[in-house]
Design a protein around this nucleic acid. Structure first.
Lengths: 193, 193
DNA sequence: CGGTGGCGTAGACACTGTCTACGCCGGATG
DNA sequence: CATCCGGCGTAGACAGTGTCTACGCCACCG
């Protein structure tokens, strides 16, 4: 559980730094090796291809996101609706604070889809959301909680992207995401009572 | 208005084909030149950098999307709610039919943001959506139409991406996007009456 | 007829990911 | 103790990329 002290862990950590400092285009195999201080061929022992290194770095991002959401939920009031709001806030805050990582995490063309693929990395998070949504609709709702949760997740994710691009501000003039977040939550979960 | 017969237009068209056939990673400056049958330095006369060629190709995509949405709206019934549904359907259909193009269009890290930037390319579409949303809420709604339209756009876009990644199917088991689209529309615009 | 500017060619450069052969070094084995 | 051997990192090569530069070609215009 403690951080990997070997070359593998050092490469991943250096990649995370590089991503944060210079964006995903700087996340080169050779540059990462350079930063760690090894030759350009060294990463090949642990990551057979560039994609596998990127995938490992993205996995780190998913772990980070999960941690932030857990923390936000731990500090949130017990009402389900407020807990969904906390999760949503943590999600879009993560997207804004870790832009490069957020982009990388969802570049499915770059990430490998094999064993323990990245596409499955967001699944626990989705299950969590389904549970929270189900609590918001205690009686059997008109719609399965999975569908509502899926639509909510899509809205959340889309809003994080649009916000990061500046498109929302450009189109509506509003810079704060709060009104949109509120619109999404009340739309899917009903008015805040 | 007729297609550009010069090298510039031929490069853009070859790029669109390449994108459709082999995905965005194949969209190389040199490969595009090769397909047109000119030397690797030729594109430089028209596109000073790789980004500018990609941007021109993405602009083609925005024009295509706008055309499809116009066609869908022309064939849609006059009720505003149905028109929003038609727009939404055209949007996610485009995302699925032109996957590579859809990805490219929103790779804001790749596209140039200068004069006539790509970030503004989606604006007319957004204005259209604002108008339709406003018609759905004739009386001054509890929320500005821009906010509702922004949230709706985010939901739409996020759903198109999640669907393209297979995440929705993976998480919920549903393959058809219709239930999610319906959930999003009724959530933001009220039940279909 | 001569110049000139638009347009494409061709070569170079630094950089990338991947592949391969090669050393080093520590621990297991006879 | 001597010897092998396998894990691990080095170093060089190769094809491919974007960008820059110098160079031809050729139509057009004074």
């Amino acid at each position: 559980m403690e951080p990997d002290q070997g070359l593998r862990g050092r490469l991943v950590r250096a990649g995370v730094e590089l991503l944060r400092e210079q964006g995903s285009s700087a996340l080169t195999l050779r540059e990462t090796a350079r930063r760690v201080g090894v030759s350009h061929g060294a990463p090949r022992r642990w990551f057979p291809t560039h994609l596998s290194l990127l995938s490992a770095i993205a996995r780190e991002g998913f772990a980070d996101l999960a941690g932030r959401i857990d923390a936000a939920l731990a500090a949130a009031p017990p009402q389900p609706r407020a807990r969904v709001a906390a999760l949503a806030g943590a999600y879009i805050d993560f997207a804004a604070a870790e832009r490069g990582m957020f982009e990388l995490m969802f570049r499915h063309d770059l990430l490998e889809s094999g064993y323990l693929g990245l596409r499955e990395a967001g699944l626990p998070l989705f299950r969590l959301l389904v549970g929270l949504v189900a609590q918001c609709h205690p009686e059997p709702a008109d719609r399965p909680a999975e569908v509502t949760a899926g639509a909510l997740w899509a809205a959340l994710h889309g809003m994080a992207e649009l916000r990061n691009w500046g498109s929302l501000q450009l189109a509506t003039g509003a810079s704060a995401p709060a009104p949109f977040l509120d619109a999404i939550l009340t739309a899917h979960l009903g008015a805040d009572t």
